[in-house]
Computed example of a mutant assay.
Amino acid sequence: MMWTKPFGLCFVTFASTVSAGVLNQRSSDSYSLYAYGENIGGLPLYYAHGIAVIANHTPANATDVGQVTFTPGSSGSLVGNPTNGTESDGKRRTSGSFSNQELFIPSANSTDHQVGFTADASSDQVTKKFVWYGHFLLVETDEGDYTSLFYAKENQTQDGAYSLQWNITNEDDGDGEYYAVSIRSIAPSNV
């Protein structure tokens, strides 16, 4: 298993000491999200049947799939819709049929770690706590701290694709390979 916990813990410690004055909500601009971490150099975020996936290409084996463009919602939510345009190789992006889906992380009470999308959040889904430190996406905890506990879980059946996870612990050790990632609104320079 690949653990990059020191990076994740370092960023969490740094993020939790950030002054609230430098944290903010995004304006009305639209943007995409990208994951950066060990061997993950700015993979875009995709919607795949309600699950958040990061990949170097449109994820296969999903009929409702597409890269996501976000706009700010109410109270710190991120509202996603399909991105229009073309891939870097000139092919048209696959646009999903989803619309106005809020990004969520699992709540502290949830036993699931999968990040996803929802139109109607349950009590186990947090949609309203996203904040920005520059171009880094953070989450405000109930205690008022700012964290980034995003992880990429390697997809065993699709090379170059990862499911986006939240708050992986040592108990999740035998469940696959995880990589700590930061989520940013800046595309990699090779796009």
Results as ranks from 00 to 15, higher is better:
residue 75 S to H: 12
residue 10 C to N: 00
residue 16 S to N: 13
residue 131 V to I: 10
residue 185 S to A: 15
residue 26 R to K: 09
residue 106 P to D: 03
residue 107 S to K: 04
residue 52 A to H: 07
residue 87 E to K: 12
residue 2 M to C: 09
residue 150 F to P: 04
residue 111 T to H: 13
residue 48 A to L: 15
residue 35 A to I: 06
residue 3 W to K: 15
residue 42 G to C: 14
residue 19 S to A: 09
residue 119 A to P: 00
residue 31 Y to A: 08
residue 75 S to V: 12
residue 101 Q to L: 08
residue 4 T to F: 15
residue 7 F to T: 15
residue 168 I to W: 07
residue 15 A to C: 13
residue 97 S to I: 07
residue 127 T to H: 07
residue 33 L to Y: 03
residue 40 I to L: 15
residue 25 Q to M: 05
residue 72 P to S: 12
residue 31 Y to E: 01
residue 72 P to L: 08
residue 65 V to Q: 06
residue 66 G to T: 01
residue 93 R to H: 10
residue 95 S to C: 15
residue 118 T to L: 14
residue 106 P to C: 02
residue 75 S to A: 14
residue 30 S to T: 09
residue 104 F to R: 00
residue 98 F to E: 00
residue 163 S to H: 05
residue 186 I to D: 13
residue 82 P to T: 11
residue 75 S to Q: 11
residue 174 G to K: 06
residue 100 N to V: 08
residue 42 G to S: 13
residue 162 Y to V: 06
residue 162 Y to C: 11
residue 182 S to Y: 11
residue 15 A to E: 01
residue 103 L to A: 08
residue 47 Y to D: 00
residue 13 T to S: 15
residue 146 Y to G: 05
residue 13 T to Q: 13
residue 142 D to S: 14
residue 127 T to K: 10
residue 103 L to M: 14
residue 186 I to M: 14
residue 119 A to H: 08
residue 110 S to W: 00
residue 79 V to E: 04
residue 150 F to R: 03
residue 32 S to D: 12
residue 6 P to E: 06
residue 43 L to M: 14
residue 107 S to F: 02
residue 154 E to Q: 14
residue 79 V to H: 02
residue 103 L to V: 04
residue 40 I to H: 08
residue 108 A to C: 05
residue 15 A to R: 02
residue 122 S to E: 01
residue 102 E to P: 00
residue 126 V to T: 03
residue 60 A to R: 06
residue 2 M to W: 00
residue 98 F to S: 00
residue 59 P to K: 07
residue 165 Q to A: 05
residue 94 T to M: 10
residue 70 F to K: 03
residue 122 S to H: 01
residue 84 N to M: 15
residue 191 V to H: 10
residue 129 K to E: 10
residue 123 S to Q: 11
residue 87 E to R: 05
residue 126 V to N: 02
residue 36 Y to K: 06
residue 163 S to A: 11
residue 142 D to Y: 01
residue 3 W to Q: 15
residue 27 S to H: 08
residue 119 A to M: 06
residue 69 T to W: 04
residue 156 Q to M: 07
residue 52 A to C: 11
residue 98 F to C: 01
residue 126 V to L: 07
residue 43 L to V: 06
residue 7 F to G: 10
residue 81 N to H: 02
residue 172 D to S: 06
residue 160 G to T: 04
residue 109 N to G: 09
residue 166 W to G: 10
residue 68 V to F: 06
residue 82 P to C: 13
residue 9 L to E: 05
residue 75 S to L: 14
residue 79 V to C: 05
residue 31 Y to V: 04
residue 163 S to P: 07
residue 18 V to Q: 04
residue 98 F to N: 00
residue 112 D to V: 15
residue 143 E to L: 14
residue 113 H to K: 12
residue 54 I to L: 15
residue 88 S to C: 15
residue 52 A to L: 05
residue 141 T to I: 04
residue 97 S to N: 10
residue 102 E to M: 14
residue 139 V to D: 00
residue 154 E to N: 09
residue 176 G to F: 09
residue 104 F to A: 00
residue 45 L to P: 04
residue 129 K to L: 12
residue 71 T to A: 08
residue 97 S to Y: 05
